[in-house]
Write a protein that binds this DNA or RNA. Structure first.
Lengths: 226, 226
DNA sequence: CGCCGTTTATTTACAGCGTAAACTTACAAC
DNA sequence: GTTGTAAGTTTACGCTGTAAATAAACGGCG
């Protein structure tokens, strides 16, 4: 059980982790919706139903993968922050990174944020991983408030982090279903919101970050006044 | 072809529309991921493969359903606006309605905003329906800008609509994957962002709308200054 | 060491899925 | 009426997730 590898050919030794590994490996070859338990099992060299010794169902396996990917995502966000930069800049960088992750690691992003089939599969492990991803966002919001001399409260901090995450997530998920292309194609929105070039992405997220920063600061200040 | 109903038992007469109807009907009985072409076809009284005379594949059928649902969604949003109210109030109402729709019509919401399997299935009909849903959002943003004496530009209008839609969409989709419950459970965010009661929803969206309004106005004003 | 319960694998099997192919029926136009 | 086309049918294929019964190896105890 503790051994990473088992020499006998019958018992795999660490099938649970191996399945998650295999999932990620095969993901680079074919999209998530074509990944079957059978392919996974055969890639690991095990019978299809062996999976059920470690996961209640396919969705439970996916949850384990999600948790792993959320750490990958959190690392990605972290690596795009620079403590020497201003909070505004970092907020902008974070939201751009959020979006770019959904492009560079499209498969990963989709899996991370797809709905769990049943709520029982929302494990503590998954939640903890999710909170790790949120941390950099919230920290940056705190830095922003401090930078503007606004006293930190759970409300200010939470509202900022919530708004920031939601905006980045909303932009990104709308973009993946081609809403931006449609709205810009119909001249509803200015062309940079098409998000179809490096420059457009940068400009759009700078604009959105300005909106967010101004909004969060204004809300925080008015909360103090009360 | 033009006839809504055909008396012969062989040719259905209007199978295309009937399939979409059946999809919506069956949706109230079982969730979308359990809806098979076979069930749909048998509910309409037709062989499973008859579907392929009208839709390229299952995803194409789903696209037609999406378009119908988007109009339903747009109606819902429209009905929660009141031209006699202030733009701020309407913006708040719109985002609450956005969220509530995802609760009251969970199945519908999921279908509307799920990713199309192939881009060919993003029909003009679907895009047009999407733009209809965006209209009320953008109109309200325009009213907001006018109300504050800010000259309308495609940029102001588009940025506001984009930010507004993204924020509402982000909040809603994050909530459906239980992010709010997690963040509030871990005391990361204040409890009203759990969004688990009427009062919490109202307060949270009022707060978020304040952020958004302040941000959009500030961004629009600074754009004028340049 | 030998026994034995538990864990982890295997084989087999089932019901269901999306959809391709070949065939049939009905309608519409000449 | 004949004929081409649109819209149905039947049959079949390969695939899916997963339940059930079975077999193998591990871990601990006498």
């Amino acid at each position: 059980m503790q051994n990473p590898k088992n020499l006998s050919s019958y018992h795999h030794g660490n099938l649970k982790a191996a399945l998650v590994d295999a999932y990620l490996e095969l993901l680079s070859q074919s999209p998530a919706e074509k990944l079957s338990l059978r392919k996974l099992a055969s890639h690991v060299g095990v019978a299809p139903t062996a999976v059920y010794n470690h996961f209640a169902d396919k969705d439970a396996l996916t949850t384990a993968v999600k948790a792993r990917l959320l750490h990958h995502f959190a690392d990605y966000l972290d690596s795009h922050c620079d403590p020497d930069e201003s909070p505004e800049t970092n907020l902008s960088r974070l939201s751009k990174a959020y979006f770019r992750y959904s492009i560079e690691h499209q498969q990963f992003f989709q899996i991370i944020f797809q709905q769990p089939k049943v709520i029982e599969n929302v494990t503590d492990e998954l939640i903890a991983a999710g909170m790790r991803a949120e941390e950099q966002l919230r920290k940056t919001v705190v830095a922003l408030l401090e930078h503007h001399g606004i006293p930190i409260s759970q409300y200010n901090e939470g509202l900022g982090a919530f708004a920031c995450w939601s905006l980045a997530h909303g932009v990104t998920t709308l973009a993946t279903i081609h809403v931006n292309r449609a709205a810009c194609g119909f001249n509803r929105w200015p062309p940079q919101f098409m998000l179809d070039s490096e420059a457009a992405v940068n400009q759009a997220f700078d604009d959105l970050t300005r909106v967010l920063v101004a909004g969060v600061l204004a809300a925080a200040r008015s909360e103090i006044a009360n």
